[in-house]
Simulated assay, not measured.
Amino acid sequence: MGKTVLITGAASGFGRGVAFGLAKRGHQVIAGCQIWPQVWELRNSARTEGINMQVIKLDVLNEIDRAKALGIEIDVLFNNAGIMESGPMAEIPMSVFRSVFETNVFAALELAQGFARAMVKRGAGRIVWTSSVAGLVKVPFDGAYAASKHAVEGVCSAMREELRPYGVQVVTVNPGAFRTGFNDTGMESMDQWWDQGERVVEHWPVRELNHQHDPEEMI
């Protein structure tokens, strides 16, 4: 029997691949996209491929979008939306650091909390979080992202044990470097602010991302 699955960050990368893959397997997919142009593009792509899925606007930082999404009854939440901001911890602007936690941790937890309540009452459900290998190891020059994923691991490990007695599963997936563009743009992100002030440490050394894996392996 097919499940109803809500996927955040479904416009690209793992979220998009999982949305199409689950829809092809007969599940009822609700694909959340951050902005309206992404909604339109994903709807058109699904229509072109003959895929039946519901595409909604779901900016996880937008309380109106979150409230609308929480009104949907689902079996599975895939907390996949996330951002990566690079930079040395001694230099990264606090506003940038906070933005990573707002998206990767706080907004995701708000959605998880909302759906968890409904799942507990129903006695069944699953919450899946996209974490990262960075949540398990140290990653110099990517400390903000790694810290947010360490937080995700902590949140999920606690929530897993808390919700297990109520029939609700909480799991993480921990991808490394895959060719979705996420790592490439995340590494580039620090260039937006690097030249806007006096720096005391060296810029992130050039790292060629030529050993990334096929996203289909993770999807």
Score class of each variant (00 low, 15 high):
1 M>W: 08
2 G>C: 11
4 T>W: 01
13 G>Q: 03
17 G>P: 08
20 F>L: 03
21 G>A: 10
21 G>P: 05
21 G>F: 07
28 Q>T: 14
33 C>R: 01
40 W>P: 00
40 W>K: 15
44 N>C: 10
47 R>I: 01
52 N>T: 07
57 K>T: 11
59 D>W: 04
60 V>D: 02
60 V>M: 04
61 L>E: 12
64 I>D: 13
64 I>S: 13
65 D>E: 05
66 R>V: 09
70 L>S: 08
70 L>P: 09
76 V>Y: 01
79 N>P: 01
82 G>Y: 00
83 I>C: 06
90 A>N: 12
92 I>Q: 12
94 M>P: 02
98 R>E: 12
106 F>H: 11
106 F>T: 13
109 L>D: 00
110 E>A: 08
111 L>W: 04
112 A>L: 03
114 G>M: 06
114 G>K: 06
117 R>L: 11
117 R>Y: 09
118 A>F: 07
124 A>R: 15
130 T>F: 07
131 S>V: 03
133 V>F: 09
134 A>L: 07
137 V>Y: 02
141 F>K: 07
145 Y>I: 10
148 S>A: 10
150 H>L: 04
151 A>G: 08
152 V>H: 08
152 V>I: 15
152 V>K: 04
155 V>N: 01
157 S>M: 12
160 R>T: 03
162 E>P: 00
163 L>T: 02
165 P>E: 06
170 V>I: 12
174 N>T: 02
175 P>C: 05
179 R>F: 05
181 G>E: 11
183 N>P: 04
186 G>Q: 10
186 G>N: 07
187 M>N: 13
188 E>K: 11
189 S>W: 10
190 M>H: 15
190 M>S: 10
190 M>Q: 14
193 W>E: 04
204 W>D: 10
205 P>A: 06
206 V>N: 09
207 R>E: 09
208 E>T: 13
210 N>E: 08
210 N>I: 12
210 N>S: 13
211 H>T: 13
213 H>Q: 14
215 P>T: 02
215 P>G: 01
217 E>G: 14
218 M>F: 15
